[in-house]
Simulated assay, not measured.
Amino acid sequence: MAYQSHHGFRSPIALRLVLFLVGVCLVCYIVGPRLYWHLTGNFAASRASCAQCICDCPLEPIFSMPAELVNYSLADCGKHDPELNEEMEKEIIDLLSEELILLKNVSHDNLLHTKASILEARKTSSQYQKEAEKCNTGVETCEEAREKAEAALIAERKLSELWETRARVQGWKEQRRSYL
């Protein structure tokens, strides 16, 4: 009686089929993008930030390592682009003056933003000051009312004392009951 493992493949044909499928997937994974770029012509556009060069270059073989991957250079890129040529021909002084103008515009925008922030802070501060003045007025009113109530209480105590003294003179005796 032969021992059969439940953990492995039962036939070497199935193992070979799985290995073949893994190999095909790896080849498609490695060669697929290169083949796609070669057929669509988008390899240079996907690697460079400038527009695709207009030139009559010989086609490379599909399975060779592209020169763009080995040593990518932007020397010929934009050679036929008039806007890029105009930009590259500018003098360093022109470029620096443009940069200064841009910096001036940015600082002007920052200054406007700062002024707007200061104005908003002043409005908020003014609003808080008004609220604080209302609160102080309310506290002063309450303090005056408390002082008047305290003076009225003192006067009422004096009056009560006077009446109690008169009542005692008339013979009144204090009777306090204790409630438990």
Rank of each mutant, 00 (worst) to 15 (best):
M1H: 11
M1C: 00
M1G: 09
A2F: 04
A2D: 03
A2G: 02
Y3H: 08
Y3E: 15
Y3P: 06
Y3N: 12
Y3V: 04
Q4T: 03
Q4C: 03
Q4F: 01
S5Y: 01
S5C: 01
S5N: 09
S5D: 15
H6S: 11
H7S: 10
H7G: 10
H7E: 14
G8K: 08
G8R: 10
G8M: 01
G8N: 10
G8C: 02
G8H: 03
G8F: 05
G8W: 11
G8E: 11
F9E: 11
F9C: 04
F9Q: 08
F9Y: 05
F9V: 01
F9A: 09
R10C: 08
R10P: 05
R10A: 13
R10D: 15
S11W: 04
S11Q: 15
S11D: 14
P12T: 01
P12K: 04
P12A: 00
I13Y: 01
I13W: 04
I13R: 13
A14G: 01
A14C: 02
A14K: 02
L15W: 12
L15G: 07
L15D: 11
L15F: 06
L15E: 14
L15C: 06
R16A: 15
R16V: 03
L17E: 14
L17T: 06
V18P: 11
V18A: 11
V18K: 08
V18M: 15
V18G: 11
V18Y: 13
V18C: 13
V18W: 12
L19M: 13
L19Q: 12
L19A: 03
L19N: 12
L19F: 04
L19Y: 07
F20L: 15
F20I: 06
F20R: 08
L21T: 07
L21D: 11
L21P: 08
L21R: 03
L21Y: 09
L21V: 06
L21S: 13
V22Y: 06
V22A: 10
V22L: 15
V22E: 14
V22Q: 13
G23H: 10
G23S: 09
G23T: 05
G23N: 08
V24F: 14
V24Q: 15
V24H: 03
V24Y: 03
C25H: 12
C25M: 15
C25E: 12
C25T: 07
C25K: 08
C25P: 05
L26F: 08
L26Q: 11
L26W: 11
V27E: 03
V27T: 08
V27N: 02
V27L: 15
C28E: 10
C28D: 15
C28H: 09
C28L: 15
Y29R: 04
Y29F: 13
I30K: 13
I30G: 00
I30Q: 14
I30C: 05
V31A: 09
V31R: 08
V31I: 06
V31F: 07
G32P: 12
G32W: 05
G32N: 02
G32Q: 03
P33G: 06
